[in-house]
């Protein structure tokens, strides 16, 4: 028994070392940094302060957080609504079609995310692809002027995050035994009821990991807001980046990051609690 334990430790050790070195320590460093003072010229002074956190309470920054959360919620919701059915039905397709659909999702990853976002500019800009299409079909009469608007940013977010949702729902639905839904039907459930009480419940862990994979990045994907939203939509991510580069205020950037991190963790915990997902994990 003891010996067994030891060999387990030896096997797991690299993982612990890796996690401590590259995850735990940087986070600790970040929290530490957030309580320090910005130096006059470069770097930080080792003087303890709470000012960085107080500053986040200013309306300017508070508002950024609210805006970021709103956008993250909206994007994640849309990603859920589109990604869940896509991943779920993909898992039910024949092996050949599964491969084709997976390929369609993977292809965009072969190009840089930035380049793909610039592609959206061509679509959204005034008299761009979308305007030409809609006006050509006489659905709209004038250019929509979508570029550098909120909807454009949302589309960019959803577009960028969708694959993560699809893949995590797919991996969960793929393992689902579809005879369970048949059993529910056999026991008197309508097809919707069978889906809701059995299939959906059992793919919730996949949906959860999809939500985590969408929600967390959507708080920080500032370049989407920058490219498709112009400078009108400022997200926490943008502020952090600005403070790090132009502002040269590492402690404040660290404080912003710390608040962001706590906030997202909190959201995920609430979500898990509400959906009861933790009880379902590992069942399928």
């Amino acid at each position: 028994m003891m010996k067994n334990r030891k060999s387990n430790w030896a096997l797991l050790a690299p993982m612990y070392v890796f996690t401590i070195l590259f995850v735990a320590l940087p986070i600790l460093y970040m929290f530490l940094l957030s309580f320090l003072t910005r130096a006059e010229v470069w770097g930080v002074d080792f003087t303890f302060t709470l000012d960085n956190y107080k500053r986040i309470g200013e309306p300017l920054y508070l508002n950024t957080f609210v805006e970021s959360l709103k956008l993250a919620f909206l994007s994640t919701l849309l990603v859920m609504l589109i990604g869940y059915p896509y991943g779920y039905f993909m898992a039910r397709m024949s092996a050949v079609w599964k491969k084709r659909m997976l390929l369609l999702i993977m292809i965009p990853f072969w190009t840089s995310a930035l380049i793909r976002l610039y592609g959206w500019i061509i679509v959204f800009r005034t008299n761009g692809v979308l305007d030409k299409l809609l006006m050509g079909l006489h659905i709209t009469e004038e250019p929509l002027k979508l570029l550098y608007t909120y909807p454009a940013v949302v589309v960019g977010m959803v577009y960028s995050l969708l694959p993560f949702m699809i893949l995590s729902v797919y991996s969960s639905a793929e393992k689902l035994d579809f005879t369970l839904a048949e059993a529910a039907r056999d026991l008197g459930a309508s097809s919707f009821k069978a889906f809701w009480t059995v299939s959906f419940k059992l793919t919730l862990p996949g949906l959860l990991s999809g939500v985590i994979l969408s929600f967390i990045p959507s708080m920080g994907l500032f370049f989407i807001a920058d490219i498709l939203g112009g400078n009108k939509i400022v997200l926490v991510g943008s502020v952090i980046q600005e403070q790090l580069t132009k502002g040269r205020n590492q402690p404040f950037a660290a404080a912003l990051s710390a608040v962001l991190m706590v906030l997202t963790t909190l959201m995920i915990r609430i979500y898990r609690k509400v959906t009861g997902t933790s009880e379902l994990e590992g069942l399928v």
């Binding site: 035994d177 005879t179 369970l180 048949e182 059993a183 529910a184 039907r185 056999d186 026991l187 008197g188 459930a189 309508s190 069978a194 059995v198 419940k201 059992l202 009880e279 379902l280 069942l283 399928v284």
Partner: peptide
């Protein structure tokens, strides 16, 4: 779901959750 017939499935198909 509209038939008064029930099935015992080969792999039991018990709901794991």
């Amino acid at each position: 779901n509209k038939r008064n017939v029930n099935t015992v499935f080969q792999n039991y198909a018990l709901f794991p959750h």
